[in-house]
């Protein structure tokens, strides 16, 4: 199939399936919205971990940048939720742009840890230092401040669902395009052989920086949507333990792929939703399931789906091929 068609068709099918599910399981609408929003967060981490091979223990920081930017804007400055979202993305881009040059120079383990430190500092800043603005532990409420925007009043959950689907579709198309473009190849190539990239003439520092900014922007977008969805943000959003969660979701779904993050988010939130009703330590169950998936399919859920479907496709192909060969 043509690459360009594939870039749009895949995201389209996924978003249509999600929209159908919304009607089949109408009680699960909010849950599906959350999965799409969480997918964006996982997609951000996937650029770092899956494509560039950089482990960060601080992604919730970038998530909270987006959430707080949107929340503060809506609580104090303006009323337009879409503008709030755009500002959230801008916050992520700026954060990535400014921190990138310092962070991406660091060796793997230091990169992971400095992000964890940043995350802890972020929680402190939003909880204590800026308590006058963020209201600390109590959190910042702004639901009533949001105004109606033309065409789509996203204050209504049903409309918000479709709004998120549109965003999710656009981001997936861009992500898929990135995956097939030279940028995607250079991320993957950098991960396996940075030296060779430099011999080819690549400024690998800049490529990594671009990846870092994209990751930060996606996390912030996710944070913004999270805030808009709840109409409320509190500092626990940026807590360090969520960093492990997004890494697990990335692995579970299949790292370094376009659709892996969605399946990771679905798997992670799905298991959490099911298990936490029965077991309080649901994290343990998620951990065990992730291990099983990783041992069975090294490329996660999406890798597993692809492997199985390739086998089926292959079988069809072979039986079709046999007739073809006899003729020739």
């Amino acid at each position: 199939m043509n690459k360009k068609v594939k870039t749009v068709l895949g995201p389209f099918i996924l978003v249509v399936l999600l929209s159908i599910s919304r009607y089949l399981f109408s009680s699960k609408m909010t849950f599906i919205t959350e999965i799409a929003i969480y997918s964006l967060f996982v997609m951000g981490n996937n650029i770092l971990y899956g494509y560039l091979g950089m482990v960060s223990f601080g992604q919730p920081f970038y998530l909270s940048i987006g959430a707080w930017t949107s929340a503060i804007f809506l609580a104090y400055i303006g009323h337009n939720p879409i503008l709030a979202m755009l500002l959230g993305i801008a916050g992520g881009v700026i954060t990535g742009f400014v921190l990138g040059p310092f962070f991406i120079r660091l060796r793997g383990d230091y990169f992971a840890l400095i992000n964890a430190a940043l995350c802890a500092i972020g929680v402190f800043v939003f909880q204590k230092l800026l308590i006058g603005i963020t209201r600390g532990e109590d959190g910042l409420w702004f639901r009533t401040q949001m105004s109606r925007v033309r065409l789509l009043d996203i204050r209504l959950p049903n409309n918000f669902f479709f709004f998120v689907m549109i965003i999710f579709f656009i981001v997936l198309v861009l992500y898929s395009h990135m995956n097939n473009s030279v940028l995607g190849s250079s991320f993957k190539a950098l991960k396996v052989n940075e030296r060779k990239m430099r011999f080819l003439g690549f400024d690998t520092f800049r490529i990594r920086w671009i990846g870092f900014i994209l990751a930060s922007a996606l996390s912030s977008l996710s944070g913004s949507l999270y805030a808009l969805n709840l109409g409320f943000v509190n500092p626990s959003l940026g807590e360090t333990h969520r960093a492990a969660e997004v890494l697990v979701a990335t692995l579970l779904g299949g790292s370094g792929t376009v659709y892996g993050p969605f399946f990771g988010a679905l798997g992670f939130l799905g298991i959490k939703d099911l298990v936490s009703r029965w077991v309080t330590r649901w994290e343990l169950v998620v951990g065990v399931i992730t291990l099983i998936v990783m041992f069975r399919f090294s490329k996660g859920i999406w890798g597993g789906i692809r492997k199985v479907s390739l086998k089926i496709y292959d079988r069809d192909e072979r039986s079709a091929g046999r007739c073809g060969r006899q003729r020739s």
């Binding site: 030279v182 190849s185 250079s186 190539a189 990239m197 080819l200 003439g201």
Partner: peptide, 10 residues
Amino acid sequence: ENLELGSYAT
């Protein structure tokens, strides 16, 4: 894709 990388760099 390997060649594309070479092209892109130069």
